[in-house]
């Protein structure tokens, strides 16, 4: 399809979104990511039955934690799409990039950049 999507999106492959834990998401922000989103399979389509549903719950928990930390839960998002939905993948990448652009950089990095 040769679809375009913003080059700032770095993809980390996992066997199933059920593998993604709270600490992985926190580490991403800790190391300076401005935003993180998880692209899981469509709900009901998980090969391991509940992987994507577990990921959603962990994302919800981590969002609250990020709010507590003051980084903002809106920098993290769970999306569901199938492997056949290339255009949707590109759309989500643009949507999330736009959201993060509006929010600005991760406050941790912003602080470190100050003279």
């Amino acid at each position: 399809m040769r679809l375009n999507y913003p080059p700032n999106v770095k993809i980390i492959k996992v066997p199933c979104t059920g593998k993604v834990d709270v600490i992985h998401l926190l580490h991403a922000f800790e190391r300076g990511a401005d935003g993180v989103y998880i692209a899981g399979c469509l709900e009901g389509d998980c090969h391991f039955l509940r992987g994507n549903l577990r990921a959603r719950k962990r994302v919800e928990y981590t969002k609250r934690l990020l709010d507590e930390i003051g980084i903002g839960g809106e920098r993290l998002q769970m999306y569901n799409m199938s492997a056949a939905q290339g255009p949707r993948f590109a759309e989500v990448a643009r949507e999330m990039t736009e959201r993060i652009m509006t929010l600005g950089p991760n406050p941790i990095r912003a602080k470190n950049r100050e003279p």
Binding site: L26, E30, E68, I69, G70, I71, P107, I108, K111, N112
Partner: peptide, 8 residues
């Protein structure tokens, strides 16, 4: 979490 909070 503490690390991020303090860095911020």
């Amino acid at each position: 979490a503490i690390n991020m909070l303090r860095s911020k």
